[in-house]
C-alpha cells in the first residue's frame, strides 16, 4: 500500500520541482538562487515536525507501553537527522549567493543545528544499550525533555538579531509569496511529506522485524 503512496509522492515532488525550477520566473531580489526553497522549505518544515511526532510517540510509549510507538521513535530518529541535515545543507547552499556566506550564527540556523545535534544524541543514546526495552524508555525520556527544550532554544536564539527571512507561508496569514512560486512550493511540501512518511514506514518495518524476529507471525510473513 505505502509503495503507491511513495511513488505518488515522488511523482508530485519531482513534478513540483520541475515546475518550480524550470517554469517559474526569477525572483526579483534573489534571482535564481531562491529555487532551492523547493528542498529547503519542506526539509526545515519536517525537521521539527518529526521531532514533535517522536515526542508524541514517547508520551504514548511511557504512559501506555505501546511497543509500536517505541519502534516509531527509533524509526524516525535517523530520518529526522537526515532531514535536518538536508535543511542545514540546503540553507548553506542558499546562503552563499544571497547572504554571501554559507554559515551565519543566526537564530534559526543555530536552533536547527542544535536540533540536529539532539537527533544525534538520541541515536547514540539508544545505540549504547543492549537491553532494548531499557533503551526505549530512556530514549523516550530524552525525547520528551528535548521537546520541552526546543521552544526554549528557539525563543532564546531569537533574541539575537537575525538574518533569516521570516516564514513565507503560515497557517493564519495570507502567503507573502507570489502564486507562481507558491503552488509548486505547496506541491513540493506535500510530495516531500509523503516521501518522508513512506521512509518512516519502511524504517519502522525494519525495526519491527529486528525486534520481533522470534515471533511466529514474522516467520510466517517472511
Amino acid at each position: 500500500m505505502y509503495k503507491y503512496i511513495f511513488y505518488f509522492s515522488l511523482f508530485i515532488y519531482i513534478f513540483s520541482l520541475v515546475w518550480g525550477v524550470l517554469f517559474t520566473q526569477e525572483d526579483f531580489v534573489q534571482g535564481n538562487s531562491f529555487r532551492i526553497i523547493y528542498l529547503h522549505v519542506p526539509a526545515s518544515f519536517l525537521s521539527q515536525s518529526i521531532y514533535a511526532a517522536m515526542a508524541i510517540s514517547s508520551v504514548i510509549y511511557l504512559i501506555w507501553r505501546v511497543k509500536l510507538s517505541a519502534y516509531l521513535i527509533l524509526a524516525m530518529a535517523p530520518i529526522g537527522a537526515l532531514v535536518t541535515f538536508l535543511a542545514l545543507f540546503s540553507g548553506s547552499v542558499w546562503g552563499i549567493p544571497t547572504w554571501g556566506t554559507w554559515w551565519q550564527w543566526d537564530a534559526r540556523i543555530t536552533s536547527t543545528l542544535i536540533l540536529f545535534i539532539m537527533y544525534l544524541g538520541l541515536i547514540s543514546l539508544h545505540n549504547s544499550f543492549s537491553n532494548h526495552e531499557k533503551a526505549d524508555k530512556l530514549l523516550s525520556w530524552l525525547v520528551i525533555v528535548g521537546f520541552v527544550n526546543i521552544p526554549i532554544i528557539k525563543k532564546s536564539v531569537d533574541w539575537w538579531s537575525t538574518l533569516h527571512q521570516s516564514a513565507s507561508i503560515t497557517l493564519t496569514d495570507k502567503p507573502t509569496i507570489d502564486p507562481s512560486m507558491l503552488y509548486p512550493l505547496i506541491g513540493s511540501i506535500i510530495g516531500f511529506f509523503g516521501i518522508v512518511i513512506c521512509l518512516i514506514i519502511i524504517s519502522s518495518k525494519v525495526q519491527i522485524f529486528k525486534r520481533e524476529k522470534t515471533k511466529s507471525w514474522i516467520k510466517d510473513y517472511v
Partner: peptide, 17 residues
C-alpha cells in the same frame, strides 16, 4: 561523553541568557 552530547543542547539557552 554521551552525557555531554545529550546535555549540552539543553544548556545552550542558559548560555545565551
Amino acid at each position: 561523553v554521551l552525557g555531554a552530547i545529550i546535555t549540552m543542547p539543553l544548556a545552550l539557552p542558559v548560555l545565551i541568557v
